[in-house]
């Protein structure tokens, strides 16, 4: 394997950064527009898969399996721990909504322009689930890319 050609590298660089930005937008606006943690995480993981296929040597130094697996476990534990915080009323209770703290603004009924500072724990859970899904799908592609040797 001599690595990819120049055309593949340039076109991949032109696609990877807009795809990452689009995935982060989908995660951050998960409580206002269609999409959420799983969808944004899948888009970010597909951008990382393109990075792994096009830049084989450099990508193996940047995306290491130990770092990705640690991030995935931390995100999953944070998601479960955040759901335990609402245990005063019930499991998965939205304790930050309409409370005036971070993400605690109330929403008027009916169509409105959409305020980013609303929805309680839903943006935090979106961020944690997006981190978990992107790390998990990247680990799958990375493990299958490293396994075995090429066909002679």
């Amino acid at each position: 394997m001599n690595g990819s050609s120049t055309i593949v590298k340039v076109v991949s660089l032109a696609i990877i950064l807009p795809a990452l930005t689009f995935g982060l937008y989908i995660i951050a606006h998960g409580h206002l527009t269609p999409g959420g943690g799983f969808q944004g995480g899948a888009i970010i993981a597909s951008a990382f898969a393109l990075f792994l296929v096009a830049f084989d040597k450099q990508a193996s130094k940047t995306l290491r399996k130990n770092l990705l697996s640690a991030l995935e476990c931390l995100a999953l534990l944070g998601f479960i721990g955040l759901s335990f915080f609402g245990l005063g009323k019930s499991f998965f209770f939205n304790f930050l909504a309409n409370s005036g703290l971070i993400f605690g603004q109330a929403v008027p009924f009916g169509p409105n322009p959409g305020f980013i500072n609303t929805a309680g724990v839903i943006p935090l859970m979106n961020f944690l689930v997006g981190l978990e899904v992107s790390c998990a799908l990247t680990i799958i592609v990375l493990t299958m890319l490293k396994a075995g040797g090429d066909k002679k």
Binding site: A42, I43, S46, A49
Partner: peptide, 13 residues
Amino acid sequence: ITEAAVGACLSTA
């Protein structure tokens, strides 16, 4: 969005 990201990109890779 999920189908386009998972079915058309990741499973193809």
